[in-house]
């Protein structure tokens, strides 16, 4: 029985990671073949970095992801703070559900609806081509927002509500009280929200595809366009790099959380010990 469960786990792992492993291995292949590994080489990586069109797409993607992540984190945090302060329960729950809609909505519907809106508003103002970097940024912020709120809101709810009041009591204006007392407390949530927004924006294809103008290409769209022709191992190299970037971010975010948890645990133990020492 025990052996069976071990085999089962191993199989799951294989199915999960085999594709990535194959991709990784063949990105270092000397030849173009997908069946024969003829020798280790960085040939395709060199090739990749010579492809200006792709590099431009990488730059576009990064600019978009960083802006979308920063803006949605700022907006999402502000929204969470506002929602947390709502006294009316019905209103708060409604807000909560409404902000979750973009998260459960199929990407394709979000993409098409956003595109429609951009074109509609563009026509209204008489613009010839209304889809550009700006519209894509708005689209990306839209689908990142709920994830940021989802990360920040629980941290706010866990926080002692008296903290910002204490800061105000000690001479802070409400805005300063937020930065001095509230923000440090919810920082773990804000950071995780930021990282999530960044990775979501980085690998989004469907919504980007519908809202991108013809002049602005992100990496996923570029890859898609390339696969329409022939797939070169250059793409494996690119995919490998992206995989490792995302993996690193994920690890950082997990470590950050783990760190928090351990700090809390340590504090609890010290408190317990000092209580026992007294009795």
């Amino acid at each position: 029985m025990k052996r069976a469960s071990k085999i089962y786990t191993a199989l799951v792992m294989v199915f999960l990671f085999a594709p990535i492993a194959i991709l990784l291995v063949f990105s270092f292949n000397d030849a173009k073949s997908l069946s024969v590994f003829s020798g280790f080489s960085l040939h395709w990586y060199r090739e990749l970095f010579r492809d200006d069109e792709t590099l431009k797409a990488v730059r576009n993607t990064l600019v978009l992801a960083v802006s979308a992540a920063l803006i949605s984190t700022a907006m999402g945090t502000a929204a969470a703070v506002g929602m947390n302060r709502m006294r009316n329960k019905v209103l708060r729950q409604t807000m909560d559900s409404v902000t979750n809609i973009p998260m459960i909505n199929p990407d394709i519907i979000t993409g098409i609806s956003l595109m429609l809106m951009f074109v509609f508003v563009g026509r209204l103002f008489g613009a010839a081509t209304s889809l550009n970097f700006g519209t894509m940024l708005i689209a990306h912020i839209t689908f990142c927002l709920p994830y940021v709120i989802l990360q920040v809101l629980p941290k706010l709810q866990q926080m002692d509500k008296a903290l910002p009041e204490a800061a105000m009591d000690l001479g802070c204006t409400p805005l300063r009280a937020f930065f001095k007392a509230e923000l440090p407390e919810i920082m773990p949530g804000v950071i995780t929200g930021l990282i999530m927004a960044f990775t979501l924006s980085l690998d989004d294809f469907v919504i980007s595809y519908f809202t991108s103008g013809n002049g602005f290409q992100t990496l996923p769209i570029r890859i898609y366009n390339m696969t329409k022709k022939t797939v070169t191992p250059k793409m494996y190299a690119l995919a490998t790099i992206i995989f490792f970037v995302i993996l690193t971010l994920l690890l950082i975010s997990n470590l950050y959380d783990e760190d928090e948890v351990q700090k809390r645990r340590a504090a609890r133990q010290i408190r317990k010990a000092s209580k026992e020492a007294k009795t």
Partner: peptide, 20 residues
């Protein structure tokens, strides 16, 4: 007058110390 301009200070029920 807002709290930050009052010459009054508070000790909160669960202390509300700044953990950071």
């Amino acid at each position: 007058v807002p709290p930050y301009k009052r010459n009054v200070n508070t000790v909160f029920q669960r202390y509300a110390l700044f953990p950071h």
